[in-house]
Simulated assay, not measured.
Amino acid sequence: MCSACQMSEYTLSPLERHPMARTRKHEATSREQPATDSRALILDAAAGLFSTFGYAGTGLRQIADEVGIRPASVYHHFESKERILEEILRTGLTQTLQCTRGAVEVLPPEANPRDRVEAAIAGHLRGIHENLTYTSTNLRFHGQMPPDVGKRLRPLRENYSDYWRTLLDSARRHGWLHPDLDVSMLRALILGGLNRTVVWFDRGKGPIEPLIRTSILAFSGIWTKERSQNLERKPPTRSRKQRT
Rank of each mutant, 00 (worst) to 15 (best):
N112R: 11
P108H: 09
G92Y: 12
I208P: 00
P147C: 06
K234A: 13
D202Q: 06
F78W: 00
S8H: 05
P235D: 07
A111P: 06
K241H: 13
P179C: 10
E82N: 08
D180T: 14
Y10I: 07
T237Q: 10
N112A: 11
L194H: 02
T29V: 13
I222N: 05
I88A: 04
E110N: 09
G68Q: 04
S239C: 03
D162V: 00
D115F: 14
D44K: 04
R126G: 03
P155S: 06
S80L: 05
F78P: 10
S73L: 00
S161E: 15
K25W: 03
L217C: 07
K81V: 00
V106E: 12
D65G: 02
V74T: 01
H129T: 12
I84P: 03
Y10V: 06
C99R: 00
L231Y: 09
H76R: 10
E32K: 10
R233L: 08
H174R: 14
G123L: 09
R22M: 15
I212M: 02
K205S: 15
A56E: 10
L107N: 05
E86V: 04
G150I: 10
R101Q: 13
V183N: 03
A40K: 11
N131S: 12
P207E: 11
R238A: 13
T237M: 05
T58R: 06
D44W: 03
T224F: 01
E9K: 04
M185V: 15
R140N: 15
L167T: 10
I128C: 08
M7D: 13
R31G: 15
R22I: 15
P113Q: 02
F141L: 13
Y160R: 11
R152T: 12
R203V: 15
S228H: 07
R154V: 04
Y134N: 11
A28F: 00
G57C: 06
Y163L: 05
E87G: 00
S228C: 12
L217K: 14
T23K: 00
L156V: 08
I208Q: 01
G57T: 11
E86Y: 01
C99V: 06
I63D: 07
L15A: 13
A119H: 13
L97A: 11
W176Q: 04
M1Q: 01
Q229A: 14
L107Q: 06
D169M: 11
A188L: 03
S51Y: 10
H26M: 09
G192T: 08
L132D: 10
E82F: 01
T91L: 08
S239Q: 13
F141W: 15
F50H: 00
G123R: 01
Q95G: 04
T23R: 01
A218M: 12
T166D: 14
P109D: 15
G123W: 00
K25F: 09
R227T: 13
P71V: 00
H26P: 01
P210W: 01
G204H: 07
L191P: 06
D169L: 13
G150V: 12
W176H: 11
S184F: 03
L186P: 03
E86F: 02
K234G: 04
H142K: 08
T197A: 03
W164G: 04
I63R: 02
T244N: 08
H18K: 14
M145E: 14
W200F: 12
A46D: 04
R227L: 09
F219K: 05
T11G: 04
G123T: 05
